[in-house]
Design a protein around this nucleic acid. Sequence first.
RNA 1: GGUCCCAUCGUCUAGCCAGGUCAAGGACGUAGCCCUCUCAAGGCUAAAGCACGGGUUCAAAUCCCGUUGGGACCGCCA
Length: 465
Amino acid sequence: MVTVRFAPSPTGHLHIGGARTALFNWLFARHNNGKFILRIEDTDRSRSTEEYIESIIEALKWLGLDWDEGPFRQTDRLDIYRKYAYKLLEEEKAYRCYCTPEELEQRRQESLKQGKPPRYDRRCREIKNSLSKPFAIRFKMPFEGETVVNDIVKGKVIFKNSELEDLVILRSDGTPTYNFCVVVDDYEMKITHVIRGEDHLNNTPKQIHIYKALGIEPPQFAHIPMILGPDRARLSKRHGATNVLTYKEEGYLPEAVINFLARLGWSYKDQEIFTKEELIEYFRLEDVGKANAIFNAEKLLWLNSEYIKMTNEKRLFELLKPFLIKDGYIKEEKQIDIEWASKAIRSLKERCRTLKELSHAMRYYLLDYVPIEEKAKEKYITEKTLPLLKEITERLETLQEFSQKNIEKIFIDMVNEKGIKLGDIAQPVRVAITGSTVSPGIYEVLEIVGKEKTLNRLRRIIYAY
RNA sequence: GGUCCCAUCGUCUAGCCAGGUCAAGGACGUAGCCCUCUCAAGGCUAAAGCACGGGUUCAAAUCCCGUUGGGACCGCCA
């Protein structure tokens, strides 16, 4: 059975790059009816936090990337790693290193200064008798030869063993290091395919030697390209929103984010928009590109607008509620007629690219009075338009059924009778009712706002002039 | 510095593995036009790319080599 894992380290929130790695793993597992495991790599105790673990889990749930096993935590499994590490020590495939981190750092700096590769000089490798000093366990890398990685995405990659260093597998405090736990865990969890960022490609030969020393067969590897910021540097906090959950807060739909992430480094014919089912059906690691991709926020925005258009109004309203409450347009406990809300959302959804924008646009449907933009007021609420506003108010007052159709008739009649253009009256009314020069069709807006609020707002602006 | 990866419009990409049907297709963004009560949406059109240099071949975006450019990794971080 195909088994993959997503193994984030909880030293930060789930970022865009990590989310795509998780997505590719998830898609691969679902496509192959395999298993997707979540594993938390928290052996860096000083930087890992509970808060980040929860945040990562929340983000994965929001994206709908469900896992079949886990979350496993490496800090719960320390005995296992120790067991394997000591096994290697006994078999003399690893050795005790008595150098202190301070000494190592100092030597590193010196090597760097002299332009030499900052590699451990293996000075403890030949110490025969154990000393009574604190020690770390280092793995014995071969001095020569080559290691071949047959990567599903990158193809055949050959590394010189002479470039590999004797890495620490168990720290002096007894905790294991990354390159060691991945191997042990991927073996113990029967991972068949390791799908991870390209930043791990250089680690792969080291891990392959650990597999060999442990006498186990390495899994298949697939190293997916990096996601870069617009400046071509690796995506980081400097580039703004990299935390997946901020996209939730900014009003993006999870399926839009998924769709966007899937198309970063992967494609299927000329298709841009995919349902989750389609992604699962079409996704193949062989179709993942080799080149790094730049995060294109504009395209994500476009995709989100497409998803908003495709989403039915009832679901949009549910998604919108937290935004409306936060913006102060509705109260949590207040009941809103769902049919009315649907009508309102329908009028706006093709004009908004995020839920946040949509919420903001809803203000003139929900509030009693809206703030009027100064520029709009100057341009459209004038001596010239005031009589028109008065007249349309009077005409609208007479309406029994305040429907779009009837409202339209009132406008058209007035335009014909007075020999004016529709815009001459529609724009001032729009400003009076929405506070802005931009809105859905004016008849539609008036119907949704309703007779009472419409007349109140018109009278108020006339009175205030 | 060393090692490894990568290279098609500004961006995401199709095409490359199995060279010809590619005077390179789609999408985002940009510009223009149409529609129009505003703004969107929608429709149509346009500008925009095979990094460079060699080689192989009747034929190269596609195969090979080099150059340049970008990225990643070199930790008792993951």
